[in-house]
Design a protein around this nucleic acid. Structure first.
Lengths: 200, 200
DNA sequence: GACAAAATAGGACGATTGACCTAATTATTG
DNA sequence: CAATAATTAGGTCAATCGTCCTATTTTGTC
């Protein structure tokens, strides 16, 4: 069965919201890109907020699916965390062009004072909880959530600057640094005298 | 002498672009906020791009001025770098509400495929060069620019997440971590065996 | 095949957008 | 004081926005 019109609309809107931003993408943009009329469009989504809801839910579902895959494919928590870090490289080209889909949407909605901002932040929460779980399994205990937030923030910063400067070398370099940081964290586990443990 | 109308427009536009975003801010918004007519507005700025230019130039000037002040007030390069890190706390409330002025503008313009994106990135360059110079003075040599970019990225990530989660505790915690990182970097200067030196 | 429901197309709406224009007012200058 | 330039106000324009509406076509069901 071919994808339903509703699904095609959400898929297209997802892409356009990412590439152009939510506000800058109009009904007509999406309808034209999907190849349907605006009337048909409105039959599936009553308001623009409805489409945004659909897009966010789609991203939530896709993200959960990706995290589940990493959970299965990764042999140990550290390898799984490295999977997370390496999306920066896997999606490097898109990130350099359009930034991080999660961070840029969250920022835009925050500025628009949009009610869906908290839903968009839910995408961050998905990564945060998943990363936290991995750190807990590594034995970081109470520090796990801080470590998760730390690495989440690092990724965001790398995405922002890689986008601003369109700099691939920086992106690759910082991914290495983040992996080194992870190794140092694990090496200092249970060794409070290690200065690198201060890194959260 | 009272601020000229042109200056008041730029000042207001600067604030509105930060709080609402560039695209979401209309001529009417700015004119109303300044308290002038749209006609008067158009006399000073022919197009919306003109205002954006004005705002970016204003930010460039203000940033240079701030960096100069840090240069004077800081007793040593490390203290100056800490001044940079601490803007996250000084501007914490605004950042939690609207994100980083530099990063969010750069991201938005990138998505809009706006020609002024490179000018906005110039704001990053200002910080980058200034930070690089501080690291050079500390004796980091060739690594200085990488370190500057690293800490610039870290700040961006902290701003993005503090905004997304409206989390002040995270912001304060990460500022501490960044300062610890700086100390570790300086401690490992000229000691290649130190693992923390890997942190770039 | 008849009939109801879902899907699609396309027009129309009021509002707002960036942009432009002219007229009136104010400031400046010779 | 006269003349010129700069400033300000407010109206107008076409285009586009999100939204809504009514037809027409397609699909599904008995």
């Amino acid at each position: 069965m071919a994808a339903s019109t509703r699904e095609r609309i959400i898929e297209t809107a997802d892409l356009l919201f990412y590439q152009q931003g939510y506000e800058a993408t109009s009904f007509a943009d999406i309808a034209t890109s999907v190849g349907i009329s605006r009337g048909n469009f409105y039959h599936h989504f009553k308001t623009k907020d409805d489409i945004l809801d659909g897009v966010i839910n789609r991203r939530l579902a896709n993200t959960e699916q990706m995290l589940d895959r990493w959970e299965i494919d990764g042999n140990d928590p550290a390898e799984r965390i490295r999977s997370f870090i390496h999306i920066l490289i896997v999606n490097g080209e898109k990130i350099r062009k359009f930034g991080c889909p999660v961070g840029t949407l969250s920022s835009e909605l925050a500025k628009l004072n949009h009610s869906a901002q908290s839903d968009a932040a839910g995408l961050f929460t998905l990564f945060r909880s998943w990363l936290c779980r991995q750190f807990e399994r590594l034995g970081f205990g109470e520090k796990s959530d801080s470590l998760a937030m730390h690495i989440l923030g690092r990724s965001q910063g790398v995405a922002t600057l890689a986008n601003a400067f369109d700099d691939d070398g920086f992106l690759i370099r910082e991914v290495d640094v983040m992996c080194d940081w992870l190794d140092a964290q694990m090496a200092s586990l249970g060794d409070p005298s290690d200065e690198t443990a201060k890194s959260v």
